[in-house]
Structures are given as structure tokens and as C-alpha cells.
């Protein structure tokens, strides 16, 4: 089963290779991995999409925790979470297709971020299914290039707790 694991790590050189080396050395899957610094510049946040049965996921979480540069590991599948992925798609557009391309962009609430006489560069974000869907629709027009960020995800605040907090803030 697919799991999204959120990992807070030290923001220093070599940490990515320790995490990647752990996955390759122990034969765990990485579907996607994204990493960027957090608000605190001494730390980075990784979002790793992986898959495996319960025992493997337990090992992945434990092995990640064992790495000395790893500060915190959360298996997001244990809670509610929201996730997004961004794709940038460069579409080859002949005159007749340009309107069609824009219609598709509109339907998916995507943006055209660059345009030349023969291409549109489209930015779209959403869950993986949405990205897949727009790629499928754009493919007949001719996709020249495609880059995807891999998923980033964050746990949702529990509704009740969020409500209590909101009240508190209101009172203050």
C-alpha cells in the first residue's frame, strides 16, 4: 500500500544521500521524494512517497528514525492529510489546437505560465489523479516536456482541536 511519510531532517550536506542510501540499501521503494528547507533554516522537510505492507512501512519509519540526522518521522497515512503535486507541462500547439489547450487549462484551473507562437507552458497542481487526467487530455496535442515535483503533504489539524483553538484565539 502507498504511504506518504513526512520526515524532518537536519539541513546539512549528505543528509539526502543518507536517506536515499537507506532506501536503496534495504530495498525499500521510493516513488517520489521532495525536500526543501523549513521555516527554521537549520531543518529541512522531506516528503517521501513509498509503498509496502505494514511490516515494511514499520521498518521504514523505524529505520528513518534511527538515522542520526533525522529529527522527526510521521507516517501521514495514520492521520488525515492533504497532499499536492505540481506539474509543468510544455505543450506543442499548432494554430488549431491553441484554443483547445486553453480550454483544458481552464477546466483544470491550471495556468499558462509561458507562451511562444508554437508552445504553451502550463502549470497545474493537485492530487496525482488530476495531474494524470490533464496529461491524458494534453497528450493528443503533443507534450514536448513534462516535469513533476513529486508530492508534498501535510497532516490536517483534527477538526475538534482546530475549533477549540479558534475559540481560544477569538477569546484572546
Amino acid at each position: 500500500m502507498e504511504h506518504i511519510i513526512s520526515v524532518t531532517v537536519e539541513n546539512k550536506f549528505g543528509v539526502l544521500s543518507r536517506v536515499a542510501g537507506l532506501f536503496s540499501g534495504r530495498g525499500f521503494n521510493i516513488e517520489s521524494l521532495s525536500v526543501a528547507p523549513t521555516l527554521d533554516p537549520s531543518m529541512s522537510q522531506m516528503t517521501i512517497v513509498t509503498s509496502g505492507d505494514e511490516r515494511i512501512i514499520e521498518q521504514i519509519v523505524k529505520q528513518l528514525n534511527k538515522l542520526i540526522d533525522v529529527i522527526k518521522v510521521v507516517d501521514l497515512n495514520e492521520t488525515e492529510f492533504v497532499s499536492r503535486e505540481t506539474a509543468i507541462i510544455k505543450v506543442h500547439t499548432k494554430d488549431v489546437d491553441r484554443a483547445e489547450a486553453l480550454r483544458i487549462v481552464d477546466i483544470f484551473r491550471a495556468n499558462v505560465i509561458d507562451s511562444t507562437p508554437t508552445t504553451y507552458t502550463i502549470e497545474v497542481s493537485g492530487d496525482p489523479k488530476k495531474i494524470e487526467a490533464i496529461i491524458n487530455l494534453l497528450q493528443p496535442l503533443g507534450i514536448k516536456e513534462l516535469v513533476r515535483t513529486g508530492r508534498v503533504a501535510v497532516a490536517r489539524e483534527p477538526v475538534r482541536q482546530a475549533a477549540v483553538q479558534a475559540k481560544k484565539i477569538a477569546r484572546e
Binding site: E58, Q59, K62, Q63, N65, K66
Partner: peptide, 8 residues
């Protein structure tokens, strides 16, 4: 002492 040893 090593949690990864457990249930490996």
C-alpha cells in the same frame, strides 16, 4: 535498545 531490531 534498537527499535529497528524489533519486528524486523
Amino acid at each position: 535498545i534498537d527499535p529497528t531490531s524489533i519486528r524486523k
